[in-house]
């Protein structure tokens, strides 16, 4: 069984009286341990697809299964639980809670999971060391660079050991060197810990790093290629 099964998924939006078809019958399977990217121009539907897989939005048609569970039948509270325990998110920017320190941000999801304070702190520090930010643990996001903030976001996303990390254009606001460093980090986490990553991107560098590249255009998959890196 695949980690993610997307079957004939459609998503329509209403823009005034006009119906916009963001996704038109997408079929996709993601296996455990993949390091994949959904690429395409703006408006191709890649962020919509990630939001649907992450249970942040509901499809108009079709079904999405995560670890065998159909997301559309879950109630809001169950979706929260699903996101909390099975999915990690990294967004384009403003990922972190600005009034919490890097360590507290990483601890945040563990707090919601009910992890004991001492264990929470230890795991957060361990994860920050993993992403190269052990010395920045007590700094708050506004005092950190964009690259450092994204690393903290990655640490927060993987500290709870989710089934998959969904990263929506994680390098969009970073320069190429910082972006490459972030991708190296995520690639190492993928190789070392087997964390599954699914990106949405139009950054060629992210596409280069990905072992599988799914191209979307006008809400439909145009190509799906697996490469060896």
């Amino acid at each position: 069984m695949s980690l993610i099964e997307v079957s004939r998924v459609t998503k329509d939006y209403l823009d005034g009286k006009t119906v916009i078809q963001a996704l038109r019958g997408v079929d996709l399977s993601i296996e455990k341990g993949e390091f994949s990217a959904v690429a395409g121009p703006s408006g191709s539907g890649k962020t919509t697809l990630l939001n649907l897989i992450g249970g942040l939005d509901q499809p108009t048609g079709g079904s999405i299964h995560l670890d065998g569970i159909e997301l559309s039948v879950l109630k809001p509270r169950q979706l929260h639980e699903m996101r909390l325990h099975h999915i990690g998110f990294v967004f384009q920017a403003y990922n972190l809670i600005p009034v919490l320190t890097a360590r507290e941000n990483v601890e945040f999801t563990m707090l919601l999971q009910g992890v004991a304070p001492r264990e929470r702190k230890a795991r957060a520090l361990e994860m920050l060391e993993e992403v190269g930010l052990a010395d920045e643990a007590n700094r708050r996001p506004p005092a950190m660079s964009g690259g450092q903030q994204q690393r903290v976001a990655v640490a927060r996303a993987i500290v709870t050991k989710p089934g998959i990390v969904l990263a929506d254009e994680p390098t969009a606001n970073l320069d190429s060197t910082t972006g490459a460093g972030l991708l190296d980090l995520m690639q190492n986490l993928n190789r070392e810990y087997g964390v599954t990553f699914l990106f949405s991107t139009h950054d060629p560098m992210v596409m280069e790093y990905s072992r599988r590249l799914i191209r979307l255009r006008d809400g439909q998959i145009k190509s799906d290629e697996t490469r060896s890196t």
């Binding site: 929260h80 909390l84 919601l112």
Partner: peptide, 16 residues
């Protein structure tokens, strides 16, 4: 609003 969205996305429930 954006921050609340992020918190909800990472698993913060309505009660929290």
């Amino acid at each position: 609003t954006h921050e609340i969205g992020v918190m909800m996305a990472v698993g913060m429930g309505r009660k929290w």
